[in-house]
Computed example of a mutant assay.
Amino acid sequence: MGTITLRKSAKGVVAFRAQIRLKEDGELTHSESKTFTRRALAQEWLRRRESEIEEAQATGQPVQGLVTLKQILEDYVSDAKGIVAWGRSKTADIARLQKAKLAHRDARHLRAIDFVDYARWRRTEEEAGPATVLNDIVWLRQACLGAVTRYGMNKLVQELDAAKQELLRLKVIAKPRRRIRRLKPEEETALREYFGKQEVRAKVPMLQIMEFALLTARRQEEITTLKVADVDFESRVGWLDDVKHPKLKTGNRRCFRMLEPALELIKRRIDSGQADGFVFPYNHRSISSSFTRACKLLNIPDLRFHDLRHEFSQH
């Protein structure tokens, strides 16, 4: 099935090219090769690959040549395109994984220790947190599940699962801790005073947005995508599209109840002409930036706009 050919460059460098060619009814169905500096290495590669090919043929699996983890990740991206909408964070994570050294390895030969070493490298060299590295492992597993169907790489998923269990045991990866930061009364007062002074000249009405967040417990992205047409004043509810969900990224339309002060705030914005199509037609990133900047100026540590959601029951 395999052959080894001695090759010599113009500079006299000797190399050994191992090649495997499969034929069916006289027609070439598969070909792969790899070059080594020593014959013994070429022989070992041939032995291992012939064994893998025979096992694949015996179990009815497709015979695959070199398939890198990068290719598997690219397949994952391609399969999701136009079907599943990813967030910015996941998109960036996948792009970074495609550039990692691990991604250029032959996925057929990746073992649990390779994924363990990658996770350790992320923690030590790139100073990524345990929850961040866990995300890497989760995305890799999702991509590798596609490789089971496309390339028959069942073992790859098994190796990754084994690595995940070991990484959890070693506490290299971990689920994110639930954030419990609460807004203190004196902090709320300071923020209201600060945003109140800025309200006249500010492009983003942060005082109104903060008030609305406290009254509805909505995320900043949801606040800026709430349409005037989706506010039902009679039923005292609002409707949102694509609400954040663990599995559904698009099409998740949900309603939420609104207290009378929240509805009155919306009415004021409509009457004043500030709500044009959307109740708060602003970029959600601007809200986050303005809130963070205010907290810094007011010496309010470790408080995020998202933390306001915890105060809903108190307003």
Score class of each variant (00 low, 15 high):
Glu187His: 12
Lys203Arg: 12
Arg177Glu: 11
Ile180Leu: 13
Glu193Cys: 04
Leu207Asp: 05
Ile180Trp: 09
Leu191Asn: 01
Gln208Arg: 09
Glu188Cys: 03
Leu183Ile: 10
Glu199Thr: 01
Ala202Ile: 05
Glu187Ile: 07
Gln208Val: 06
Ile180Val: 15
Leu207Val: 08
Gly196Leu: 04
Ala190Ser: 10
Arg181Lys: 11
Glu188Asp: 06
Arg192Met: 04
Pro205Thr: 06
Leu207Lys: 14
Lys175Leu: 07
Glu193Asp: 10
Tyr194Leu: 05
Glu188Phe: 02
Glu186Arg: 13
Lys184Pro: 04
Pro176Trp: 12
Ala202Trp: 03
Pro205His: 07
Pro176Met: 14
Val200Phe: 15
Lys175Asp: 09
Val204Glu: 00
Lys203Phe: 03
Leu207His: 05
Lys175Gly: 08
Lys175Asn: 14
Leu207Gly: 00
Thr189Pro: 06
Val200Asn: 11
Pro185Ile: 03
Ala190Glu: 04
Pro185His: 11
Glu188Ile: 00
Arg201Ala: 07
Glu186Tyr: 08
Leu207Asn: 02
Glu186Pro: 07
Val204His: 02
Leu183Trp: 07
Glu186Met: 10
Val204Leu: 08
Leu191Cys: 03
Ala202Tyr: 02
Arg179Lys: 13
Ala190Gln: 10
Val204Lys: 01
Val200His: 13
Lys197Trp: 03
Glu199Ser: 10
Arg178Ala: 08
Val204Met: 04
Glu188Asn: 06
Arg178Gln: 10
Leu191Ser: 00
Lys175Pro: 06
Leu207Ser: 02
Pro176Asn: 14
Glu188Gly: 03
Pro176Phe: 12
Ala202Cys: 10
Ala190Met: 10
Gln208Cys: 09
Leu191Thr: 02
Glu187Cys: 05
Ala202Met: 08
Pro176Gln: 15
Glu187Leu: 09
Lys175Tyr: 08
Val200Thr: 11
Glu193Thr: 14
Gln198Phe: 02
Leu183Gln: 06
Gln198Leu: 08
Thr189Ser: 15
Glu187Phe: 13
Arg178Ser: 15
Pro176Ile: 11
Glu186Gly: 07
Val204Pro: 01
Phe195Tyr: 00
Glu199Ile: 04
Thr189His: 08
Ala202Ser: 14
Arg182Cys: 12
Arg181Glu: 08
Arg201Gln: 10
Gly196Arg: 06
Gln208Phe: 04
Pro185Arg: 14
Met206Pro: 01
Arg179Gln: 10
Arg201Ile: 12
Glu186Gln: 15
Arg179His: 14
Ala202Phe: 04
Gly196Lys: 09
Phe195Asp: 00
Arg178Asn: 14
Arg182Ala: 05
Arg177Ser: 15
Ala190Arg: 13
Gly196Pro: 05
Pro176Leu: 15
Glu199Phe: 06
Glu193Ser: 11
Pro185Met: 06
Arg179Val: 11
Arg192Val: 09
Leu207Tyr: 01
Gln198Ala: 02
Pro185Ala: 12
Arg177Thr: 07
Leu183Phe: 03
Leu191Glu: 00
Lys203His: 10
Glu186Trp: 14
Arg179Tyr: 13
Arg181Ala: 07
Arg179Ile: 14
Pro176Cys: 12
Arg181His: 10
Ala202His: 02
Glu199Trp: 01
Leu207Arg: 05
Leu207Trp: 05
Ile180His: 15
Leu191Ile: 01
Ile180Met: 14
Ala202Gln: 09
Arg178Val: 09
Ala190Lys: 12
Ala202Gly: 06
Thr189Val: 13
Glu199Gly: 02
Lys184Cys: 06
Arg179Asp: 11
Arg182Lys: 15
Arg178Ile: 15
Tyr194Thr: 02
